[in-house]
Design a protein around this nucleic acid. Structure first.
Lengths: 201, 201
DNA sequence: TCGGTAAACGAATGACATTCGCTATTGACA
DNA sequence: TGTCAATAGCGAATGTCATTCGTTTACCGA
């Protein structure tokens, strides 16, 4: 047939983008800089990716999945419903959403600047929500599906909120995100569960 | 001294910006379009505002304050701790954050694209948080200052999260933001309060 | 070895926010 | 009432991007 796309070039572009997004954020990173850092030309980047935003998602997706899997593993290793939930909330909001590597800043900037025509699939969002539901179910098996859904949604909203605030880094106001408040979210569920069957671990 | 800035021109710029931001969002609105719509020149806009983002804040600030004052009045007119809190959460998340006039989209886009050098004062954020604290205190006088602070912070995070999601208008997933979950946040506080003194209104 | 496809590239293009150099107004003061 | 200096207002740059175009190779199957 013809010449084939090189997996190496693709990876070089992703690596360069990852580094630059981390250093300067999505908006301040130029295609030109990505190309230079990946040792290729600006225009060749478009052979591998349709747009700048597509690169952002290609970088963010695996990062986010890895973080979530790590979190799930931590939560799984924690004992006790309350401790599990606390680990989940803290890990999600203080760990992932507020991470200092700049990945969530990239996500927020990409989402905020996305044109309506950039349609990005909600696959990652759905996947993340499912991980949260599973974690909640693991921590409190007695919870209802509705409860898990509502809590997962609330957490995702807070996730986005924390990520957005990252960009203001005004230092003021923002110490740790108020995960404390979110622990209250789970309290009724925990109370109800432990009332039925005493804590086992 | 010299020639003075005209309040009319300033207002014309703000009005034009307000309309255009509402129609197309912050990013898709150009200074050139604002100037044209305000019947002045592109460069003259910079006599009145230092940057595009400054215009965005000048438009958003009064809009947000008006919405919050309206909300506070609604909450004040509601009777009963639980009903007050529900009115507050629903009004804030479903009403203001998810509004269809595009103002919060403007805020999110402006914040996400703000350069670190654009320093925007956190006056509005502080003011909004204070309104929330006051509303919570009004609804549940027995609450502690720490509780009110944590809940206000959680609500502001959710506010930003909802505002950010607006831009994805994927229709899917997002029906109403899951305010239901947030009502749980307040339950322990309400229970504690009503245990001490029976509901009065 | 040959031919065609598509990767790769350098040079446009087209949008923008923001700045520059100049002109025209105007408000305080003589 | 006239003068003049500060500055509103303007049209034309500037500079920075993402994205596209026209060519030129390099590769793969035959």
């Amino acid at each position: 047939m013809a010449r084939q796309k090189s997996e190496q070039v693709r990876q070089a572009i992703l690596d360069a983008a990852h580094t630059l997004f981390t250093e300067k954020g999505y908006i301040a990173t130029t295609i030109s800089a990505i190309a230079r850092s990946a040792n290729t030309s600006q225009s060749n980047v478009y052979v591998y990716f349709a747009s700048k935003i597509e690169i952002a998602f290609a970088v963010f997706d695996p990062w986010m999945r890895a973080k979530m899997i790590e979190l799930e593993s931590n939560v799984g290793a924690t004992r006790g419903a309350e401790a599990k939930l606390e680990a989940m909330v803290t890990g999600l909001l203080n760990g992932i959403a507020a991470d200092h590597s700049g990945q969530t800043l990239t996500l927020v900037q990409a989402l905020a600047t996305a044109k309506p025509t950039d349609n990005y699939s909600s696959t990652l969002l759905n996947w993340t929500m499912e991980r949260l539901r599973v974690m909640i179910a693991d921590a409190v098996p007695a919870s209802t599906a509705d409860e898990r859904e509502a809590l997962a949604q609330a957490l995702m909203l807070a996730f986005d909120g924390v990520a957005l605030r990252q960009n203001l880094r005004r230092g003021e106001i923002q110490g740790e995100p108020s995960t404390a408040a979110f622990h209250h979210l789970f309290q009724p569920m925990i109370d109800r569960a432990t009332a039925k069957e005493p804590a086992r671990t």
